[in-house]
Write a protein that binds this DNA or RNA. Structure first.
Lengths: 169, 169
DNA sequence: AAATATTATGTGACTTGTCACGTAAAATAA
DNA sequence: TTATTTTACGTGACAAGTCACATAATATTT
């Protein structure tokens, strides 16, 4: 092998090592791997998408909710939930009623069929959470959540990057 | 307000609190917030997509790379990169040559124009990483990365969820 | 050498997520 | 009351990511 080729391989490996400590990339990759695992689990049981499962879960745990409430619980965009509801109505998992006090909102509620799908799916999904608790103690979880809190705070702050000073100022 | 309404609100709030400690959801939300911040930063400078920026960065740091190598560095799917290359060639940021020793591969390299875009963008993006270092010490980072390692290991293990025992067996 | 397996890349179809916009209802200011 | 602002929801357009498949080149086995 030529010297030039060796140099290329070395630069590639150095780059891999460098990116292993890039928090942005690592967090992204971990979250995506988690999503992929959830997707596979759901597919192995039935044909729920992740968004559909999260809607079922929220409704089963907290009763009828509006789109905005579910988006808030799931820390996601309302558009995602708004879009998934029609398909779930079609499948007969949920039903909507216009809000009594606020006619802008539509309360989404679980149907018996939805409850039954939730019950089936819930077995596997809670097993996943239980398996995670085996690997992460409460103390680990607290530490992890604390770091995530700080990271989220950093990443949601639009001002922190503006000054070119780099100091505390 | 009626008792029934109060009960609904309480269940909603309880659900929010519960999901605050759901590692899967929190990690997902943090990663998405990070991606959104990066997207906004990139948009404030020019019109690079996140994938395009990551390609430029890898090429600037590690010289000409194949699609598979970049996917490996970025811990992402090769399809994502494969799809973004034609647009970058169109813009004149990169050029491809068929691999010398392996004619299946195509080596992607930065053009002078690509280098120049990278230099401009790099200023802002490294400021972001520097700002993160201000918030997370090396020790914090080590702890965070350690937890992410363990989480990834859990989430990439297809077997760990199969047994219904729930214990160590 | 011939047959087989593996690997690198590209691509269609789909899900997830973001953004910007429009509409209607509600809340607030005038 | 009227005008203005805010909020809830839906939707089109796009970026990001996954999966499965096709193809061609390489590596391995026989």
């Amino acid at each position: 092998m030529t010297t030039a080729q060796n140099e290329c391989v070395d630069r590639y490996k150095a780059r891999c090592l460098m990116q292993e400590r890039n928090l942005f990339g690592r967090l992204q990759a971990a979250a995506l791997a988690s999503r992929t695992q959830a997707k596979r689990l759901l597919r192995s049981i039935g044909d729920l998408s992740i968004t559909e499962w999260r809607v079922l879960w929220d409704l089963a745990e907290a009763g009828p909710l509006t789109v905005t409430e579910m988006a808030s619980i799931q820390r996601t965009d309302h558009a995602l939930i708004s879009r998934t509801i029609p398909a779930m109505i079609e499948k007969g998992y949920v039903a909507t009623t216009t809000g009594q006090t606020d006619r802008r909102t539509s309360l989404v509620a679980l149907t018996p069929a939805g409850q039954s799908i939730f019950d089936e799916t819930s077995v596997i999904m809670s097993r996943r959470r239980a398996a995670l608790s085996d690997v992460f103690s409460e103390a680990d979880l607290d530490a992890f959540l604390g770091l995530i809190d700080r990271f989220e705070q950093f990443v949601e702050d639009p001002i922190s990057l503006r000054p070119a000073t780099g100091g505390t100022e």
